[in-house]
Amino acid sequence: MASHIVNKAQEAAREDYGQAKRLLNEAARSRSYLYPIKGVAYFLSHPALWKPLRSKLVPYLTLYSGVLGSMLFFTYLPQLAVMAFVNGPLAVLTTALLILNESSTITSLISKSYLLQDALLDTFDGTLVARDATDIVAEGRELNARGDSIQRLGKAIKKPFSRLSVNELVRYVMYLPLNFVPVVGTVAFILLQGQSPHSGLQTHDVRLTSDSSLSW
């Protein structure tokens, strides 16, 4: 059992290092770091795409508030006591950042598996429909003939999301000790968690980028 966990940790570390190196090289060449800005601008300029996520906003905020409140109540003081040894007076700040990240991670794992699956998929596929990429969307779900980009989405044939994996848990636990490095460690931990792979929508993204007729 112990050797299995060690192997998983080594595999996760190699995967993260390789992915980070590849992403940095690709970002420098393709200027893909601009995509999030373009994506936000496109999303804000197309109100029809807001529908799936808007319907989940209250449940998501309720879930996050519950997780954050529980983490603050049960774990803030114990973690503060530990962080005080390595971060001194800054422990108040770094512990708060750590708990925010932990709460965000827990909320993300729960919501991705149960709450936001359909909303994220509808938003992604709705964007493709809005970009007249109906042939791509039709590979994974039924399409209606009328309506806006969201109303045209029918029953999903393929579900790109997977449940919580062992690798995700191992990766999270493996990087927790970074928080014992004063200040920088907490920042590094948050950044590493932020770039953790989420393969669900990447499956759709591969289909999008493989079609040279689409440009943003």
Rank of each mutant, 00 (worst) to 15 (best):
I106C: 08
I37F: 15
E11W: 07
R152V: 13
L34H: 04
T94N: 09
A130H: 10
T127V: 05
L61M: 09
S70G: 11
N144R: 14
P197V: 00
I37H: 14
V206C: 12
L116A: 02
V82Q: 15
V58R: 10
Q193K: 06
T203P: 00
K112M: 09
A28Q: 07
L63P: 06
N144C: 12
T209A: 12
A28I: 12
L57R: 10
M83C: 12
K51Q: 08
F85G: 06
K158L: 01
F73D: 10
L121A: 03
I136W: 01
G140R: 11
T95V: 13
R141T: 00
W216F: 15
L153G: 07
R22V: 08
L24V: 15
V92K: 10
L100F: 14
L24E: 05
N101Q: 05
D122S: 10
G88D: 05
R171M: 09
D125N: 00
G88L: 08
Y60S: 03
S199Q: 01
D125E: 07
I150G: 02
Q117V: 01
V170L: 11
S70A: 15
L164F: 09
L44N: 05
L49S: 00
V173N: 03
R14F: 10
G154F: 05
R131W: 14
I150L: 04
G147R: 07
A28N: 06
S213E: 15
V206H: 06
A133G: 08
Y33H: 13
I106P: 02
A188T: 10
I5L: 15
Y76D: 06
M174L: 07
R152Y: 15
S113R: 01
P59K: 12
V58F: 07
V206S: 07
W50T: 02
L115W: 11
W50M: 08
L120S: 01
T94K: 03
P59E: 11
T134H: 08
G147E: 12
G39C: 07
D211G: 02
M71E: 04
S212P: 04
S210M: 15
G18K: 04
K158G: 00
S103W: 02
S3C: 05
V58Q: 07
S210V: 03
A48G: 01
